[in-house]
Design a protein around this nucleic acid. Structure first.
Lengths: 263, 263
DNA sequence: TTAATAGTGTCTCTGAGACACTATGTG
DNA sequence: CACATAGTGTCTCAGAGACACTATTAA
């Protein structure tokens, strides 16, 4: 999708001359950033990676990990670079979300933000983000006030890491609450026609685990039987023959996700 | 969605000093354009507005109407401005599509394109685009080679305005074939959960007309009974009591689209 | 009257929800 | 054994597809 068509075409002589004399600095240009909504699902909560700004503007505010797009990298690569640098993650599911371009969304200058969302299994974040919050990064709990795919903003709360209690609300910088809202809206919309639940689970998982991920994203409970039937009917699940262990009750069968290509 | 959160917040003194000394020109920045896919449905074909470039690069090539984003306008406003200038249209349905940012998609310099799609009833384009093709603009017929919501590129053909024959393929500049493909993919995906078919029809329309629009977008025929039932069940259609006239057979009832707010 | 399409009634099939029942692990 | 959850079988209900039939206009 992110490919140029112009690369292979022949360039006539007069156009070459035009390009040689083209002055890219002749017009004011906005800055372009990518911001990444790194989502994971853990213990029935949507969580998202936030970083604390250590520079102005909004120094000390919590924002999505992001960075300026370099002149020699595509948007997709910029997003992957941000993810690699701020979360030490490579090869995770990454998809463009929406581009935010209100004139005054950043007080420095005109900044247009191309947002992405990334999905990752919580286990892969274990060593990345410090136990609760290492001062510069945190896995905030996402709270979505609206139902369905309507849309709206989403708010973030301090992760209550198993302890209990609600955690404090985290004020988000810039328009990042709107970006979070858009990410949840997109996730909910994609869930029932795209195989994205698997991206939030380990290699092998139980049907109950997959259902739990879906329920967390959608913010509502699902019918067990129908979910099981629907998932198995997609043909994208393969039983491994193994079962989960040490669960204090009958262990569920472990499944694996199989791509259409592998079938 | 396109709103800044920073506008209302208080700015501490040291941050104000930082902003005052911020040099926006310190880093290379890409150019940002908006490109608009103006779609209409006519005589069972998807049509899209193309303009012929009168400047380098790609002089003479057919491309989507577009323009650079100005420093003082949001992306949405830029798209609306392009539509007003190149198609003399205001108040049509306009929605952000995708942002294309491959490094070499434009030979001039780094250009990131935020694409939009717009939907308009064919009648409103009657006077806008010259009979077939006024040299600088044309309503090309869109050909989509793929089925469903898979995605891929779309190609454009010279409009065969009722005459017959196939028309010649139009070579598209830059990566605009990919943008067209993305627009069709999005349209097909939205069609069964968002009321967008109405945007392509006049104020009053028949159910058969609405079904025809859906079939054209989806590229496949639909079941008449099920379509009628489903549409009436949405509660978004209101019978006017009037009927179409002079059709050479039993005239169908005319319906009007009613928004949820108006009910 | 015929041609052509609008619009309705009804049967079937499929998938979701509901629920009961059996299976199988831990303690 | 009890308990908890996994997994299956089956009934019902709602919506889609199919199809027959009636309605209404123009020619």
């Amino acid at each position: 999708m992110d490919q140029a068509k112009s690369a292979g075409r022949t360039v006539p002589g007069d156009e070459r001359a035009f390009l040689a004399s083209y002055d890219a600095a002749a017009f004011d240009r906005p800055s372009v950033t990518v911001d990444v909504v790194l989502v994971t699902v853990e213990a029935g909560h949507l969580r998202v990676l936030l970083v604390q700004r250590d520079e102005h503007p909004g120094k000390g505010a919590w924002v999505l990990p992001g960075g300026f797009v370099r002149m020699d990298e595509s948007l997709d690569r910029a997003a992957a670079r941000v993810l690699a640098r701020k979360a030490s993650l490579r090869g995770v599911y990454l998809e463009q979300l929406y581009t935010f371009g209100a004139v005054d969304r950043d007080p420095r200058t005109r900044v247009i933000s191309v947002s992405y969302f990334a999905l990752v299994e919580p286990e892969r974040l274990r060593g990345v983000v410090g136990e609760q919050d290492d001062g510069a990064r945190c896995l905030a709990r996402l709270h979505v006030a609206w139902q369905g795919e309507t849309g709206g903003e989403a708010s973030a709360f301090k992760a209550d890491g198993g302890g209990g209690g609600e955690g404090a609300a985290i004020p988000l910088g810039f328009d990042h609450a709107a970006i979070l809202g858009m990410a949840v809206k997109r996730l909910r919309g994609k869930l029932d026609y795209a195989p994205i639940g698997f991206e939030l689970l380990p290699e092998e998982f139980t049907l109950r685990g997959l259902q739990s991920v879906h329920e967390t994203i959608l913010g509502r409970s699902l019918n067990k039987d129908a979910f099981r039937r629907r998932m198995l009917a997609t043909g994208m699940l393969e039983a491994t023959g193994r079962r989960e262990a040490e669960v204090g009750h009958r262990p569920a069968e472990l499944y694996r996700f199989v791509t259409k290509a592998a079938r």
